[in-house]
Amino acid sequence: MLATLVALVFCGAARAETSDVETTWRLLDYIAVDYAGAVSHGSVLSPSEYAEQNEFAATVAAKIAALPPKPERQALAMEAARLQGAIADKSDAEQVAAIAHGLAAALLATYPVPLAPNKVPDFARGATLFGQNCAACHGDAGDGHGPDAVKLDTPPIAFTDAERARQRSVFALYQVITQGLDGTAMPSFDSLPTDDRWALALYASHFAFHDAAAAEGERLWKQDASLHRLVPDLKTLVGTTPAALASKIGQDKADALMAYLRRHPETVTQQQTGSLSLVRGRLTASLAAYRAGDRQHAGELALSAYLDGFEPVEPALGARNRALLERIEGAMGDYRAAIQSGENADALADRVQVLDDLFDDAEASLSPMRQAASQRFSERQRSCCAKDWKRC
């Protein structure tokens, strides 16, 4: 009985902590996006909104101070105080947004909460849910002009507002859908299943970016493989704002890419479960550089093979074959160490061949069509077939 009570208390405390972290993160996101509507060039545009910004910043500081003790909490508290000071000084919106976004990221790094869906959100399901739960206020087109909008004291958010949408991630929308928005008619939809809330957030996020932009985003995604490294997985897709992506590739490209990927989130998981051609290519180039006497470049390519080629598929492979994932990680680490130690080039080539065989197994595990067949073969049978097909 005592153990049960302790477990219940622990679980309750964990849920309370998660809720406080989520609320704090949501307040920081709100400040980062909406402060510009309260202050401009040192002047208060809206006294009520400015008062709200100060209130939210104070709440952030209080909630951080109340979180369970960790070595990083003091640094978080100092940043929260800096945010309060910046708002009190009527600092530029860019500075306040930078502090708020930085603090939000540090908060989640210190007190992790779930940041991504467990599976690909269903965009069509999101459209159905939006019609059932959101269109009455936000409008079928997401423009904030639903039939019930005129009845509300606080106008519903227009998801079609591109400037606001560029500052907001899908994760931020998911948080608002989950917890509601205090002081407004926006209720919590915590009663919806988690998958439905993610689908709804993804659908709501697409309104600001038109179909033409999505078509351009599809073209860019298919023609420029370097873009895949910028959005390698669902966690990145739902956590990245178009504004953050724009700092790397420009706003037009960022808008187009987000327009496409938010409509087709399955795209980022398809690249995870595809071939490992990138990692194979980098290892081949690494071995060639090593044979040419350029050990430094060989090491850089080996590291890139892991970071750019293999790491993006780790979550998917780990879910299907954890033992194989660990074997590949170990073998790639040994390969990098062998480069540093100056191992014989032929021995290094043998390591690449072993990895190439492991990658075959990984692709079989990751491929939905081949997974069932691959599970019927044991490692011993694979080894047998590799040596003598007639014996299998």
Rank of each mutant, 00 (worst) to 15 (best):
residue 79 E to S: 14
residue 300 E to I: 05
residue 220 L to C: 02
residue 101 H to F: 15
residue 254 A to Y: 05
residue 149 A to G: 04
residue 87 I to N: 03
residue 234 L to V: 03
residue 62 A to V: 00
residue 370 R to P: 03
residue 367 S to M: 07
residue 327 R to N: 07
residue 364 A to F: 11
residue 349 A to Q: 08
residue 221 W to S: 04
residue 216 E to M: 08
residue 14 A to D: 10
residue 316 A to R: 03
residue 197 R to V: 06
residue 105 A to G: 04
residue 262 R to P: 02
residue 81 A to N: 07
residue 361 D to N: 11
residue 356 D to R: 08
residue 92 D to W: 01
residue 328 I to R: 01
residue 25 W to D: 12
residue 73 R to T: 00
residue 99 I to R: 05
residue 108 L to W: 01
residue 88 A to H: 07
residue 344 N to V: 06
residue 102 G to Q: 04
residue 56 F to A: 13
residue 330 G to Q: 09
residue 70 K to Y: 08
residue 244 A to T: 05
residue 167 Q to R: 15
residue 298 A to L: 09
residue 379 E to I: 05
residue 19 S to W: 12
residue 211 D to N: 11
residue 371 Q to C: 11
residue 19 S to Y: 11
residue 190 D to Q: 13
residue 113 V to W: 04
residue 224 D to N: 14
residue 141 A to R: 13
residue 277 S to P: 00
residue 377 F to K: 08
residue 146 G to L: 02
residue 358 L to T: 02
residue 329 E to I: 05
residue 94 E to I: 10
residue 298 A to T: 04
residue 246 A to C: 03
residue 163 E to N: 14
residue 2 L to R: 15
residue 144 G to C: 06
residue 129 L to S: 07
residue 51 A to R: 01
residue 347 A to K: 03
residue 19 S to A: 15
residue 49 E to M: 04
residue 271 Q to C: 05
residue 137 C to G: 12
residue 360 D to C: 11
residue 107 L to M: 01
residue 56 F to P: 00
residue 71 P to C: 10
residue 158 A to F: 09
residue 27 L to G: 05
residue 183 G to D: 09
residue 178 T to K: 12
residue 260 Y to R: 04
residue 373 A to K: 08
residue 281 G to C: 03
residue 285 A to H: 10
residue 190 D to S: 15
residue 246 A to G: 04
residue 12 G to L: 05
residue 313 V to P: 00
residue 259 A to I: 00
residue 146 G to W: 06
residue 258 M to Q: 07
residue 176 V to C: 07
residue 15 R to I: 10
residue 361 D to Q: 14
residue 52 E to K: 10
residue 390 K to F: 06
residue 312 P to H: 09
residue 321 N to I: 02
residue 334 D to L: 06
residue 210 H to A: 13
residue 286 S to L: 06
residue 8 L to S: 14
residue 214 A to D: 06
residue 223 Q to C: 03
residue 17 E to V: 07
residue 113 V to C: 06
residue 23 T to F: 10
residue 41 H to Q: 13
residue 331 A to K: 01
residue 256 A to I: 00
residue 170 V to S: 14
residue 257 L to P: 00
residue 175 Q to K: 07
residue 248 K to P: 02
residue 87 I to P: 00
residue 333 G to M: 14
residue 164 R to G: 15
residue 359 F to P: 02
residue 373 A to Y: 11
residue 107 L to T: 01
residue 10 F to V: 15
residue 250 G to T: 03
residue 374 S to I: 07
residue 359 F to N: 06
residue 190 D to W: 09
residue 149 A to L: 04
residue 292 A to W: 06
residue 49 E to I: 00
residue 15 R to C: 07
residue 117 P to W: 13
residue 107 L to Y: 00
residue 62 A to N: 02
residue 354 V to L: 15
residue 334 D to W: 00
residue 140 D to Y: 10
residue 319 A to P: 00
residue 209 F to P: 01
residue 277 S to H: 09
residue 340 Q to A: 15
residue 364 A to Y: 13
residue 3 A to Q: 11
residue 197 R to Q: 13
residue 285 A to M: 09
residue 355 L to F: 08
residue 217 G to Q: 09
residue 4 T to Y: 15
residue 150 V to D: 13
residue 232 P to W: 12
residue 237 L to V: 04
residue 47 P to H: 07
residue 186 M to W: 10
residue 299 G to V: 04
residue 324 L to K: 01
residue 221 W to N: 02
residue 366 L to A: 12
residue 368 P to G: 12
residue 37 G to A: 05
residue 246 A to S: 11
residue 260 Y to C: 08
residue 214 A to G: 09
